[in-house]
Structures are given as structure tokens and as C-alpha cells.
């Protein structure tokens, strides 16, 4: 079986954070392809394969920031999890907010997990490693069967 490249959709508008995530996943042993969109509308378009995203692959994993321009991450999360075709995709919320409200709300909207962006770079590397170890290696993604 050829090695599958894990498709990850990163919904993040902060270029710095995008850079860091890309750098982190570059260090991963598991092959992956990250696409970045900067706002909620673009994210949903991508997922629905609308317009310019028509021919692109369905992501295996979504990393979603809550604070986005135009439409925020909460809206995107709701859209994904209420859509029959999309709600099986695991969504990792990765955001700077530490508030109990945001955390609880996200899980209520069926986010798969919630991560607060750490202040320290070392911490960040550790978290990205664990995401990689868990979501890209340990767990079976829904798209597993579609290999």
C-alpha cells in the first residue's frame, strides 16, 4: 500500500502561526500536506469543494482557529459538524483563548479536541509532536477506509 499523504486543512489567519505550524509538520515523519485558508468562508468553500477548490482533495483533518475574520471558527465548526458530508472529519481547535466558555462551547459543538496555543516555542513543538503522534499516527482517521 502506498503511503498515504495526510491532507490537513489549517484554518488560521495569523501568518506567524501558519509559519510555525508548517514548520512543525515539516519535521514530522509522517507525510502530510497542509493547505491554509485565512477565513471561515474560504474554509467552508474548500470543504465543499466549491469554486477554485473544486478539484482538491478532501482533508483528513482540520486544524481550526476560533478567531477568524469575516466568519469565525465557531461558525465554521458548526457548519462542518452539521453537514452530513463533512461531520466525520476530525476538527482540532487550536486557538489562543484559554476561556472556559470557549472550551466548553467548542466541545458542545462537537469539536474533537481543543488546544490552547502555548506561549513558549518549546511547548509548541511538543504539542505539535503530540498532535502528529496522536492524530496522524495513533488514531484511525475516517478516511482510512478510503485508501
Amino acid at each position: 500500500m502506498k503511503e498515504k499523504i495526510i491532507e490537513i486543512l489549517l484554518v488560521e489567519d495569523n501568518d506567524g502561526d501558519v509559519e510555525l505550524v508548517l514548520e512543525a509538520f515539516k519535521r514530522s515523519k509522517i507525510k502530510n500536506n497542509i493547505t491554509n485558508v485565512g477565513n471561515g468562508i474560504e474554509a467552508i468553500s474548500y470543504l465543499r469543494k466549491e469554486g477554485k477548490y473544486k478539484d482538491l482533495n478532501r482533508p483528513d483533518l482540520v486544524i481550526l482557529d476560533l478567531n477568524l475574520p469575516i466568519k469565525d471558527g465557531r461558525w465554521v465548526l458548526t457548519q462542518i459538524k452539521s453537514n452530513e458530508d463533512l461531520n466525520d472529519i476530525p476538527v482540532i481547535i487550536m486557538t489562543s483563548s484559554n476561556s472556559q466558555k470557549d472550551i466548553l462551547n467548542s466541545y458542545k459543538l462537537n469539536a474533537n479536541c481543543y488546544i490552547t496555543k502555548p506561549l513558549d516555542l518549546e511547548e509548541f513543538w511538543k504539542i505539535m509532536s503530540s498532535i502528529e503522534a496522536f492524530w496522524l499516527s495513533t488514531v484511525k482517521l475516517p478516511s482510512y477506509s478510503q485508501q
Partner: peptide, 14 residues
């Protein structure tokens, strides 16, 4: 203040 600071700290370290 933490947000932009995170950027500065992270990228200087990177």
C-alpha cells in the same frame, strides 16, 4: 499583549 509577544518570542527562538 500576549499574542504579539508570542510571535516575537517564538520566531526569535526559531
Amino acid at each position: 499583549l500576549q499574542e504579539p509577544l508570542r510571535m516575537v518570542a517564538s520566531f526569535t527562538k526559531l
